[in-house]
């Protein structure tokens, strides 16, 4: 079956993703690599640094709409949140809260906090979360894009949770504790992280989409991410008691309905989906099959 070539988001570098998402030539990088704002800490560990500390930030336009954007480089130290890395993202979002572009796009590709800078990274992660709430308070939405090779774990996963909306591919993984961490701490019988199909069933983009946390499921194709992100650009809705009550009710109901499930297939079956086929469905097929 002849396949049309895709421009893979999963494989692209952070710079390639930014270039592919924004309108050509519109991106202006802030603190570009020539500024050499590298980690002041990695040297202590004899670890190499990167000129952008693993995150590209800046401004540009998305289908003509002015946006701020940050993109984590999953291949540099697992896209980890170090001091400079986190501060660049915090600065960008606060800048957006002040200048009010139509959205902030967050390309999350991160194993979480950088261990060598654990305290700085964890505090920095929560500074990002506070900044997101600040941007949303003034109406600037933060849209997360997930589908990088590193996944989205730890502090980064909670940052994703704080976004207005997420776009993800089936290749995306989103969870607080990574499968390897759960296996290391709780034992292989709790989570066999080498069972790749199990890892993706549990943490992958499809499962997150079926629960609604991911608003749009796309194929691993940068233009598909671009279209989906653009369609989600709308002013952030203010936090309200009734909407949070509704949100909480849904989460409580999820526990009541699926709280005893130990495998995604059980969940999909309860949702009335063909559980054995979900993994092989395309984004469009699953979107059509998703229960209302």
């Amino acid at each position: 079956m002849k396949q049309t070539p895709r421009i893979s988001f999963y494989e692209a570098s952070a710079r390639q993703r930014v270039a592919g998402l924004l309108d050509p030539g519109s991106f202006r990088e802030i603190l570009p690599p020539t500024e050499k704002r590298t980690s002041p800490h990695l040297g202590l560990f004899d670890a190499p640094v990167s000129f952008d500390d693993g995150v590209v930030i800046g401004e540009g336009t998305l289908e003509g709409k002015p946006v701020a954007i940050f993109a984590q480089e999953g291949k540099f130290r697992g896209g980890s949140l170090g001091e400079v890395h986190a501060a660049k993202i915090t600065g960008l979002i606060l800048r957006a809260a002040a200048r009010k572009p139509q959205a902030v796009l967050g390309l999350l590709d991160s194993g979480g906090v950088r261990l060598e800078e654990a305290n700085a990274g964890e505090i920095g992660s929560t500074e990002i979360m506070r900044a997101i709430f600040e941007a949303r308070r003034v109406g600037v939405p933060v849209i997360g894009l997930l589908g990088g090779s590193c996944g989205c774990f730890g502090g980064a996963s909670i940052i994703a949770g704080c976004c207005d909306a997420l776009v993800a591919s089936e290749e995306a993984r989103l969870s607080v504790s990574g499968p390897e961490v759960i296996e290391t701490v709780m034992g292989v019988e709790a989570f066999d992280s080498r069972d790749r199909a199990l890892v993706w069933r549990t943490t992958g983009g499809k499962n997150r989409f079926l629960f609604g946390k991911v608003a749009t499921l796309v194929d691993d194709h940068i233009p598909a991410f671009r279209t989906a992100a653009s369609a989600l650009v709308r002013p952030s809705t203010p936090l309200r008691l009734d909407s949070l009550r509704t949100e909480r009710d849904a989460l409580v109901r999820r526990i009541a309905t699926f709280g005893t499930c130990t495998d995604a297939k059980q969940i999909w079956e309860k949702m009335g989906l063909p559980a054995d086929r979900v993994s092989d469905m395309t984004a469009a097929e699953l979107t059509a099959a998703k229960p209302a």
Partner: peptide, 19 residues
């Protein structure tokens, strides 16, 4: 162009910044 970057700092790899 003010700069060009090739590669990523990852194991067995490197980043080259040309200015």
């Amino acid at each position: 162009k003010a700069y060009a970057v090739a590669g990523v700092v990852a194991s067995s790899n490197l980043e080259v910044l040309a200015q």
